[in-house]
């Protein structure tokens, strides 16, 4: 399933930003016009706007708060976001802040989402604290849906341990994610990971592999 409007939500630290960046770059590489919106009003650190340079290189438009990466902790929503609902030629990626706290910001666009189909992807990582089980993830999903007044349509499994990730990590607690998929009635349509780990996964994952690059680096990484 694909849609012009793609919303990435989940627990903070689940990897929403990296997944959203990779998704934007994938679409751009397919020759599509792409706009990514840094809609994180919760956390001023490690955000989409950190990848401004790489987004520019791919011709991807970035809409971010003018205070992103500034010294001011100012949760503002850029007003030019609304234009993306009128310019139907561009594919839109919303990178939303963590948890239900981050999802409230979506409510103001409710009238637009009612009038155009959207995909809302629940990014999950069972290696993050407090979201390791189906029940915890389900509660998180329901809270985000309540806050955003939207419904999830897909799950992206981004379970990882940073640099220690192996192919085994990707599928750890996978039975919890399968259970979640069943309970929510939506598919796990993205299995995220670095190419080298994804290539070792069983065949049944072939239709949903989403190979990623890590675009946001630590200050000591040369």
């Amino acid at each position: 399933m694909s849609a012009r409007l793609n919303i990435f939500c989940g627990h903070y630290g689940s990897g929403k930003t990296e997944v959203a960046l990779n998704y934007a770059i994938k679409l751009a590489n397919e020759g599509k016009k792409v706009t990514i919106i840094d809609l994180d009003i919760v956390n001023p650190y490690f955000r989409t706007a950190d990848a401004r340079k790489i987004l520019n290189e791919h011709g991807i438009e970035l809409i971010a708060s003018e205070f992103a990466n500034s010294n001011l902790d100012m949760p503002t929503v850029p007003q030019e976001i609304k234009k993306v609902f009128y310019d139907k030629k561009s594919n839109i990626i919303f990178d939303v802040g963590g948890d239900d706290d981050g999802a409230y910001v979506l409510g103001q666009y409710n009238s637009f989402f009612k009038n155009e189909p959207y995909r809302m992807i629940f990014v999950v990582s069972t290696k993050r604290p407090l979201t390791g089980t189906c029940d915890e993830l389900f509660e998180m999903a329901k809270n985000i849906e309540h806050a955003s007044r939207l419904k999830f349509t897909d799950i992206a499994n981004n379970t990882n341990l940073g640099k220690l990730t192996t192919e085994d990590t990707l599928l750890s607690n996978y039975e919890q994610i399968s259970k979640l998929s069943e309970k929510m009635g939506i598919p796990v349509s993205m299995q995220c990971g670095l190419e080298k780990s994804l290539s070792k996964l069983p065949k049944e994952f072939d239709d949903r592999k989403f190979p990623m690059n890590i675009y946001i680096k630590m200050p000591w990484e040369l």
Binding site: G13, S125, K127, R128, P129, N160, L161, G162, L164
Partner: peptide, 9 residues
Amino acid sequence: EKVLMKGNE
């Protein structure tokens, strides 16, 4: 088992 955590957490 290892988990992925922020320093603050």
